[in-house]
Write a protein that binds this DNA or RNA. Structure first.
Lengths: 251, 251
DNA sequence: GTCAATACTTTGTCATGACAAACTCCAGGA
DNA sequence: TCCTGGAGTTTGTCATGACAAAGTATTGAC
């Protein structure tokens, strides 16, 4: 007898008048129950068939809801056994958010200084990163990002001009990704390279570090769902103040 | 008239005697066609209904195959429009592989020197990383990894002893993840932190770098599908020779 | 008592059918 | 000419039904 709290997942109900898909309603409700600990780690949830019947939805719908949570690393399914909770919070596959969003979320009072903002034809390196023809006009941005009053990162970006017009005011007040999203542009896929190197004297000065201090470097290209390149970025971060956290999940 | 090469995706056929699921057969076949360029970037693939009918499978099966490729970033679907190729190769969500595997794949002739191998009770830091009780016995490993004859990384790992027994010979000849997989242990979920710092003099010496050279640091905990912690690692890489590449995809 | 065969449970795969929602395109009217 | 409305296309969601495969538990033979 594997002692688990099975059964009684109580008030999971669906609203058929809502425009929110049923499978998503079920997934969200289950996720809440797990995050609140009402279904503890290691506990088995009801089997698909019973759960479907109790909720008054079909088994494929229930299955899809569970699958959604399995992909996020909360649940594990085993044929012949059942579905178990393995982790109480969502392990997001990987955040595709901007530094600014992360800092706001972490309550670290970000501030942005726009050092440069101009339109120029893309040089080869950038055109290559964006997968566009060399010479394509892009907005070139250099920004200094502060957190909690201290400089944190020196950021360089190129955005094709037909993607989004940008102003100093916008960039000073908001993160780049926030501006993209606000214009209906959602980054979906990105390739990143993360490395490290010593600061040049110019970088050390602007970031308030010693010469040769270690910096984290990150270059990224981001595309939207339609495969259009939205952004190329080449950034350096003070390694003493910043690191990347990633949650990976692999099939 | 959006000029695209539509139609004629020719010989996609399924084998119902195979134990490989039909949806996976279809997905694999489509992926091949796209990777080979027989369906070019920007081209629309056949709509689900027709494709299903032509292959003699049901629409849900076809849908699942397409969904599989959508999640990998090759295809994009739009309601009322169709399904388009946006990228000719799979953008894997993120590789959960070991350095050794990567080096082998990159033909960089890896070699491993085992500096230390012992069983010890987990100190707090490691127990915390593995999410086990402090004092739980773990195998502690220190390895120096070479690529192309040069030192590349200094690697520290802790593996709970009930996960896997390890020998110097195994570790010298194989990557840790390969050893795990060989024993039926598949890392599924991991959390990583990537940062940078300057080399200590001991690290500089062993890695053949100058003092204060920049190093990339990575700490990782990996779990299997059952939520069991398999491995905790804390590694330093020569930033002059190594960087992390990530492909992200976010919903 | 131990071990192997059997029954049962639970998830995995697949088919068929139906309607809804988002988008494109064309025709018709202002 | 512009733009509005509707028809057509294509993906999104959901239901029902069926069988297969992989575990677990039970039963029965030795």
């Amino acid at each position: 007898m594997t002692s688990e709290l099975q059964g009684r997942v109580r008030p999971v109900e669906v609203d058929r008048t809502s425009p929110v898909p049923l499978y998503f309603q079920v997934a969200t409700r289950l996720q809440e129950l797990i995050e609140k600990g009402e279904i503890g780690v290691g506990a088995r949830i009801e089997n698909e068939v019973d759960l479907a019947e109790r909720l008054g939805v079909s088994r494929p719908t229930t299955r899809r809801a569970i699958q959604y949570l399995v992909e996020r690393g909360m649940l594990v399914r085993k044929r012949g056994v059942g579905t178990q909770v393995v982790h109480p919070k969502v392990r997001r596959p990987v955040e595709l958010s901007s530094l600014y969003d992360d800092l706001v979320a972490g309550d670290r009072a970000p501030r942005t200084e726009v050092l440069r903002l101009e339109v120029m034809p893309a040089p080869d390196l950038i055109a290559n990163g964006l997968e566009v023809a060399p010479g394509t006009p892009v907005t070139w941005i250099e920004r200094l990002r502060y957190a909690a009053g201290e400089p944190l990162a020196l950021m360089h970006n190129a955005i094709p001009i037909d993607v989004l017009p940008l102003t100093r005011e916008d960039l000073a007040a908001h993160g780049l990704y926030e501006l993209l999203r606000r214009n209906g542009l959602t980054p979906r896929i990105a390739t990143q390279v993360i490395g490290a190197r010593s600061a040049t004297s110019a970088e050390a000065k602007i970031l308030d570090e010693k010469r040769n201090a270690s910096l984290l470097t990150m270059t990224r290209t981001a595309w939207d769902a339609g495969g259009r390149a939205l952004e190329y970025g080449s950034h350096v971060y003070r390694a003493s103040r910043y690191s990347f956290e990633l949650n990976l999940s692999a099939g």
